[in-house]
């Protein structure tokens, strides 16, 4: 974990998002600072995944402003959005590896499109290095279906960091993994931050992952930010909602 600096990477003000009559995000405002790991906690259905999908505009928000690296996501044209997304890494909960491609092809896919003019030898070198970084140097020619859950997650991380993003968004990076693999993924998140100086938003239910990675924590509840601060503030809080939520988190297995 690095000490957060003052430069703002993501700034959200008054974000609202509904699906039909269901208001998922009612009024969310937050800031992510440079080199900071921000963990977002909240019950299932509290809108955590919707929030980070709005940040990369996979979902359009109903109202409010989202500024990423100084750009207003709501007004950005398609070409500019494409350019901005080159600086953003998104780790999906399911991994979202391309089933029809080998691990090597999965890793080459974003590289060929984002780093135009890159040579094959440079690609091979980057692929080899990133696989070593995630601890899977021998997975090159495997298909995603041949990988375990933890390996899939690592390859997904590798595919995301291979283009050296400035901002990383992790959607439940340790969900469904055993405690040991979860610890390894948490360590990987910290490694990425240390090596590439990235800023990260981590959506998680895993209290151990939050402990290992968080510089700052935000708890979402009822469509808004309920509490914000260091993790210790949450753990020492006397608020019944926070204590109940943390007790549940500590008791439940990582699912």
């Amino acid at each position: 974990m690095n000490t957060a600096q003052t430069e703002t990477v993501v700034e959200i003000n008054g974000l609202k998002k509904s699906f039909g009559t269901q208001e998922v995000l009612k009024n969310v405002s937050l800031r992510l600072l440079k080199s900071e790991n921000l963990v977002i906690l909240g019950r299932s259905g509290s809108g955590k995944s919707v929030l980070i999908k709005c940040i990369v505009r996979l979902l359009n928000c109903d109202s409010g402003t989202i500024k990423v690296l100084g750009e207003d996501m709501n007004t950005l044209g398609n070409d500019d959005l494409g350019e901005l997304r080159k600086k953003i890494g998104f780790l999906f909960q399911s991994g979202a590896l391309y089933d029809s491609m080998t691990v090597k092809e999965n890793l080459e896919f974003p590289l060929r499109r984002i780093k135009k003019g890159i040579t094959q030898s440079e690609i091979d070198e980057k692929v080899k290095k990133v696989l070593e970084d995630v601890g899977l140097p021998d997975a090159l020619d495997k298909m995603p279906s041949q990988l375990s859950g933890g390996m899939r997650k690592r390859i997904s991380v590798a595919r995301t960091i291979i283009v050296e993003p400035v901002l990383m968004l992790y959607d439940e990076p340790t969900t469904g993994l055993d405690p040991e693999t979860s610890d390894e993924i948490s360590a990987l998140i910290n490694d990425i931050q240390a090596k590439h100086n990235t800023s990260s938003i981590i959506i998680t239910h895993d209290i151990e992952c939050a402990r290992a990675t968080a510089d700052r924590v935000i708890m979402l509840h009822d469509g808004g930010v309920y509490l914000e601060g260091k993790l210790e503030i949450f753990e020492k809080s006397a608020d019944p909602l926070v204590t109940s939520f943390f007790r549940t988190l500590c008791e439940q297995p990582n699912i």
Binding site: V56, L58, F92, S94, A96, L97, R113, I114
Partner: peptide, 13 residues
Amino acid sequence: TEQIDAMEVSSTN
């Protein structure tokens, strides 16, 4: 399985 979303966020149309 969110592969289409993954493509979109990696700047591929």
